[in-house]
């Protein structure tokens, strides 16, 4: 049954050091506000799971909170590389991290298997690909009907899934629209979940086939207007592409990164997110 909580209380009661946490959102609806709260609370030794680590994991990794990262594309989309992730992988700064690398198809299948309560995902993939030589969690399985050899990866079952959604109603039912990514699968695959939303409404006004998470599938809901910034929320505000471009320079330098994080995350609070999307609003 979803509880409505302040973000800091949701994070402190639901995420613990050493947990595996999937912060999902495929370019759209990336739950930045929750990651910043995790950084403020210094929750560390995390195994973080995410198809596209993006800026959100560049920040968590750069702050030294990540022990292991399970992922499939570690770039700054359309801009270049994730410089804090690179520094951790190439130079072990600020600490070494373990990588478990997959393809998008494998990650998506693994979340779906987790949501479906299966132990593994089966797909036609990784054919001729080098990842199966460096990732022991990529194996093959023979179809008992056709004899075809297929790829198998373990289901993803995170301790916690964290997502940002558009809105929730007063019971805690959650609506996701636009690029829906793997958020529904991640929440259903996880033991616990935190969902931040732009607003609480009386009626979701969801069409019959909309992507809705019923209130009894969600652990906590927190209202954080702008909580996906610099990602976006369909119908609320657009993607802050300039921020993604400018991040490349912030992340390129250890000192600049640390002072930026100190000023804009550690010394900030959750309510700055609503200011960060000012001027990016779209007409609903």
């Amino acid at each position: 049954m979803a509880k409505f909580l302040e973000l800091k209380d949701a994070v402190s009661s639901i995420i613990s050091s050493g947990d595996s946490v999937a912060f999902e959102g495929f370019t759209h609806l990336i739950p930045h506000a929750v990651a910043h709260e995790v950084i403020r609370q210094g929750i560390d030794e995390l195994t973080v799971i995410r198809m596209t680590p993006d800026l959100i994991y560049d920040q968590l990794v750069g702050m030294g909170l990540v022990k292991k990262m399970i992922f499939s594309y570690a770039g700054n989309p359309g801009v270049g590389l994730l410089r804090r992730v690179r520094d951790a992988v190439e130079n072990s700064w600020p600490r070494s991290i373990e990588l478990e690398e997959h393809s998008h198809a494998a990650m998506a299948n693994a979340y779906e298997a987790g949501a479906a309560g299966l132990p593994l995902a089966v797909m036609r993939g990784y054919m001729g690909a080098g990842l199966k030589d460096v990732n022991p969690n990529i194996k093959s399985i023979t179809c008992p009907f056709s004899g075809e050899e297929l790829a198998a990866v373990p289901a993803l079952r995170p301790d916690v899934a964290v997502i940002h959604a558009l809105k929730a109603d007063r019971k805690g039912n959650v609506l996701i629209e636009g690029i829906v990514g793997v958020q529904k699968e991640a929440v259903l695959a996880a033991k616990r979940s935190i969902v931040t939303v732009e607003e609480i409404v009386d009626d979701l006004e969801a069409h019959p086939n909309a992507c809705v998470l019923p209130h009894w599938t969600v652990t906590a809901i927190c209202v954080v207007k702008g909580g996906a910034h610099p990602s976006y929320a369909q119908g609320y505000y657009g993607r802050d592409n300039n921020y993604y471009i400018a991040w490349d320079k912030v992340a390129a330098d250890r000192d600049r990164f640390q002072s930026w994080m100190q000023e804009n995350v550690v010394a900030a609070s959750t309510n700055v997110f609503s200011e960060r999307v000012e001027g990016l609003e779209v007409n609903q």
């Binding site: 495929f26 370019t27 759209h28 198809m51 989309p77 359309g78 801009v79 998008h104 198809a105 998506a108 299948n109 979340y111 779906e112 797909m123 636009g178 690029i179 829906v180 990514g181 793997v182 529904k184 699968e185 992507c211 976006y232 369909q234 657009g238 993607r239 592409n241 993604y244 471009i245 779209v282």
Partner: peptide, 25 residues
């Protein structure tokens, strides 16, 4: 042109938008 593979305009102008597992499967 979108900056990322998931900019909002891609969804706004699409015939339909499916989940990522559906896309790959």
């Amino acid at each position: 042109l979108p900056l990322s593979i998931g900019d909002g305009e891609l969804c706004d102008t699409a015939l339909t938008t499916v989940s990522v597992p559906e896309m790959f499967r």
